[in-house]
Design a protein around this nucleic acid. Sequence first.
DNA 1: GTCTTGTTTCGACAGGTGTCGATACAGCGA
DNA 2: TCGCTGTATCGACACCTGTCGAAACAAGAC
Lengths: 130, 130
Amino acid sequence: MSNSVPALARLDEVVACCSPMVREPLDEEVAADLARMFKALSDPVRLRLLSLIASHEGGEACVCDLTGPFDVSQPTISHHLKVLREAGLVGSERRGTWVYYWVLPAALTRLSSLLRTPAGTTATTAGAAG
Amino acid sequence: MSNSVPALARLDEVVACCSPMVREPLDEEVAADLARMFKALSDPVRLRLLSLIASHEGGEACVCDLTGPFDVSQPTISHHLKVLREAGLVGSERRGTWVYYWVLPAALTRLSSLLRTPAGTTATTAGAAG
DNA sequence: GTCTTGTTTCGACAGGTGTCGATACAGCGA
DNA sequence: TCGCTGTATCGACACCTGTCGAAACAAGAC
């Protein structure tokens, strides 16, 4: 616990659970686990579904709220929701006729903090590349 | 510009470029763009490569530093590096015989802030799910 | 020039993914 | 009970992806 890392910076990690991947090489198993979560985010429909659920009133949404905004069929939406659920990004529950989905913030926070870069490199130069 | 969002919370977004996806539904084009970046992160080998590059001394690594830790062939590593580069996550440059790769922090920061959940829901309950 | 080493590209292949229509299942109300 | 509506599963299909070995390309050494 005696690093050259400022205490406040470490506090974030403890709360969020993980050290940023830019600090030390990712363990093989951890990488496999994280890759599964990122794979769930690697489809535009799923990304929009997740965003739609999270920003929905009350923090949860019925499947019936989610099929409208998309050009794909209902079974396809159902498939994508399953992928998100199995990746641990959302939870779901049936209430009577309808099934509701909500985001699991801990999962997003885990990924967010993993991708965090050291303060200072926050980079206003987004988009510049080689 | 007159939201009910605290000024300090918005400051983060400005620096990082984007509003978290849990705040409002993702635009269709934006989602497609982001999905491309997440897809680059959706493979364990690429995740480890990225982490290896970022945490390497000097913030950059030669390809020759990157082939050792993996069980896959050198052309496969080269392929994965290309995917990371085309996703805008890393930059590269040839210097004499060797080719060096480095992480583009702006890209990681963009994704990180996108996944950020509202303060308070940071959730110490990671892993709990339905 | 030729050889050697580091890296990328090519062509091929097995396996995975997104999509659909059809169908099955779950719960409600008549 | 039957029928209706909301959601999940199934089976099929085109397409994408990760992997390899072989070959090409780049830069330096001889």
